[in-house]
């Protein structure tokens, strides 16, 4: 018998919590992006686990789309980081307080 699905779900929730913690704590914008990737991967693991538990291919199809959205998000996000770095010569989230009105 293979591993029960709830073990995977607990692992995925731990990974999601770690990603959320890193996103809240770190100041470097690039590391914050990596923490978002951790949270997306936790969601992907949850989808695949539900797909196995329910014997349904729909969860895996959804992971496929999450991958695409993650790739697009990283491309646009890193473009924004490069554009900000060109003006401010730093990649720290705190330096963006100039954006406030």
């Amino acid at each position: 018998m293979s591993i029960p699905g709830d073990w995977y779900l607990i692992l995925a929730s731990a990974l999601f919590a770690l990603g959320a913690f890193g996103l809240l704590v770190r100041r470097n914008v690039l590391v914050m992006f990596m923490c978002i990737e951790l949270m997306l991967n936790a969601a992907n693991l949850t989808f695949v686990t539900f797909s196995r538990m329910l014997g349904d291919i729909g969860g895996q199809a959804l992971v496929f789309f999450v991958l695409v959205v993650a790739a697009a998000e990283v491309v646009v996000g890193l473009g924004i980081v490069v554009a900000i770095f060109r003006r401010r010569s730093s990649a720290t989230a705190d330096d963006l307080h100039i954006l406030k009105g």
Binding site: L9, F50, M53, L54, G55, D56
Partner: peptide
Amino acid sequence: IALGVNAHWATGVHHLVGRT
């Protein structure tokens, strides 16, 4: 984790879209 335990982790229709 509490939500998952309460909901017995996975509820719903089996093989809705297609089998794995």
